[in-house]
């Protein structure tokens, strides 16, 4: 992920508007680039898409993918939905939270890791499932996930 930069962000916003995307398309590009949408982007987004700042804020707050704070260098998303619950997702989540000292939605102080909840990755026959930096993981157990976390924490 790249550190937030207003000039770059404005360029992405204008390009998205020129490409005929709706505002969520621009937000997607910002999140893909910076990992989140900074408050600084609200005014230029409102201008580029002819919407009020309040409307832009509403869109950002509505969608889970549009983080409003920078995530850690690594993002671990743990599935919390029923199929994974049926095979121990609750216990797995608890183990990860204990191991990392983080709750879901929190980022470590050293900005290395963010934990997030996700509701279904479509890997439901092989839970518990998770995703680390876009890489899908399945059939997890506590020992395995702690081992995987060690590789990103070192």
């Amino acid at each position: 992920m790249v550190q937030w930069n207003d000039t770059q962000a404005n360029r992405l916003i204008d390009q998205a508007a020129r490409d005929g995307l709706v505002v969520t398309g621009a937000l997607r590009r910002l999140v893909d680039h910076f990992g989140y949408v900074d408050d600084e982007a609200i005014a230029p987004l409102a201008k580029a898409f002819s919407r009020s700042k309040a409307e832009i804020y509403g869109v950002i707050q509505y969608y889970t993918d549009f983080r409003d704070k920078p995530p850690g260098q690594h993002v671990l998303r743990l599935c919390q939905a029923e199929s994974c619950q049926a095979v121990g997702a609750r216990e797995l989540t608890k183990a990860v939270c204990e191991h990392t000292g983080l709750g879901l939605g929190e980022t470590s102080k050293d900005k290395n890791l963010t934990l997030e909840a996700v509701y279904c990755l479509g890997l439901c026959a092989n839970g518990p499932a998770a995703e680390l930096d876009g890489q899908p993981l399945a059939e997890l157990d506590s020992a395995q996930i702690t081992e995987i976390l060690r590789t990103v924490q070192s």
Partner: peptide, 24 residues
């Protein structure tokens, strides 16, 4: 591509989402 919202599977919320609005 959506942005993480279960309700957007509801057809009218989905249409709102396609128009760049919150999926209400």
């Amino acid at each position: 591509v959506g942005a993480g919202s279960y309700v957007c599977g509801e057809e009218t919320a989905l249409l709102e989402s396609l128009e760049g609005k919150p999926g209400i």
